[in-house]
Nucleic acid binder design. Structure first.
Lengths: 117, 117
DNA sequence: TTCATATATCGTATATTAACGATATAGTAT
DNA sequence: ATACTATATCGTTAATATACGATATATGAA
């Protein structure tokens, strides 16, 4: 059942530039919160909050790995609107300047170097 | 060129329930501001503002007809992200309770009866 | 011209959102 | 158990968005 509520969850989640940037990072590779934080250059609490909003919308999912939490794009979302929008967003914005810079930073991001500092 | 800015214009425009309702109304038929206002049950200034936001995002377009302004879904949007999202939104939410009620009201709405009151 | 009307814009109050630092929680290691 | 660390949540402030009424603009009629 594709509800208005679920549709608005997706559009609200993707109506913020920071969250679109996170989505495009995660399209490239799975990342933990501290890696996302490092690429964004924002506070840990802020990064965690954005990830939660994307997860609640069914756009990304998290997998615990010990002390870390790996976030990745959702493949089997509970939100029926997520799939089509995920497909679309994956197909665009790769040439956006900020997205490209983020992609480079994400590529180099290493949780072992980033954490415990 | 599909920019981040244009993408965010579309997602922001569709991150508000009132504007999704307006979009689904216009999918059914062209409407003037006073007809949209009557279906929404909101102030004229509010209705006009929402229509402007949807138009700025390239999701709808307006055609002047004397004193009236007819709004309709955009077919040849300047915003390259609009087309795909328009197609998707047209294909969903027809069974939403509020959208259905709006559709009935829109069907009955008559600018000649609504205006000059 | 003047009057009437449909829409757009302005000004403002309220509500929502995003950011931060501080703290709490949960898992690892010793 | 204690100590350490990655993440989540809390509390607050600043920015943004939504709603309204009032006013301005633009078109049509007399």
């Amino acid at each position: 059942m594709k509800t208005m509520r679920d549709f608005l969850k997706v559009t609200k989640a993707l109506s913020d530039k920071t969250r679109v940037r996170i989505f495009k990072m995660l399209q490239q590779k799975k990342m933990c919160v501290c890696e996302v934080q490092a690429v964004l250059g924002m506070a840990q609490s802020t990064s965690s909050k954005h990830l939660k909003i994307l997860e609640d919308a069914g756009l990304i999912t998290s997998v615990k790995d010990g002390l870390w939490v790996n976030y990745q794009l959702e493949q089997h979302s509970h939100n029926p609107h997520a799939g089509p929008i995920i497909s679309y967003l994956c197909s665009v914005l790769d040439d956006d300047p900020e997205v490209k810079v983020d992609a480079k930073k994400a590529d180099r991001a290493n949780r072992l170097e980033l954490c415990s500092k």
